[in-house]
Amino acid sequence: MVKEILKNKQAVIGLIMMFIVAFIAVFAPFIAVNNPEEISPAQKFARFSGRYPLGADQLGRCIFSRLIYGARYSLGIAIPVLLILAVISTFLGTVSAYIGGRFDRIFSIFCDIFMAFPPLLVVLSLVGALGQGILNIMIAVIFSMWVWFARVIRSYVLMEKKKGYVTASKIVGCSDIQIITRHIIPNILPAFIVYFSTGVAGIILMISGFSFLGLGIEAGVPEWGAMLSSAKPYLYSRPLLLIYPGIFILFTAAGFNLFGEALRDIISPEGG
């Protein structure tokens, strides 16, 4: 499988993009030239210079450094959110599909009810109730998204459960837990990875979107969506203030998406 990924151009490009963003996030302190939160009113809207590679924003903060640190926020929120989502939805989706019958039907109805509310609405009301803060936005995103992921996992498990080897494992005396952990989960893992790597892109966009709307992340934090939001008034006079974070969001989301989509093609070449 690793070989096939390296052969696929789209996957390699996606992988490189992901790697660049991850590199930036990890080594942000070494790449950034200034403290991203340092305000210097004298440098308001400074032009490109050695000190400010991409200039300064309306409060005289170094745009370049803010963008670099922004990678930490994007990945730092999206990846933990995704891991928690993965654990919750895999557990619920697998258990529901495996037990089946009435339990599964009730779970499905519950999911349907949940899915009737758009994620945005759920997040809005949760952030409203919990208040601002990175942790709260993470909770809100998990709460609004788990059902979508759980549904997908459930459908993978339902498909897998019908296959002959599951019956065969029962016959050779495997317990239900053995069947789930040794047979079903390893077999849905590839599809699962594809779904989650495209999911990262969605979550990054979602979080940037929420912070653009002023939800969850406090003003002044160098998060890309928040940067976009605070640059809004300068759309006509300083469009670059909006374009830079926009490019970073696009780049990151595109990287994960390209990789995820390529992975999907590799795993199901018949295009299912």
Partner: peptide
């Protein structure tokens, strides 16, 4: 019942699908 399966085995029609593809 699970232990009783040791006495009761079954061979199914499709050999390929009765074997876990990743094992």
């Amino acid at each position: 019942l699970r232990m009783k399966r040791a006495d009761f085995q079954m061979v199914m029609q499709d050999g390929q699908s009765s074997l876990d593809p990743r094992i």
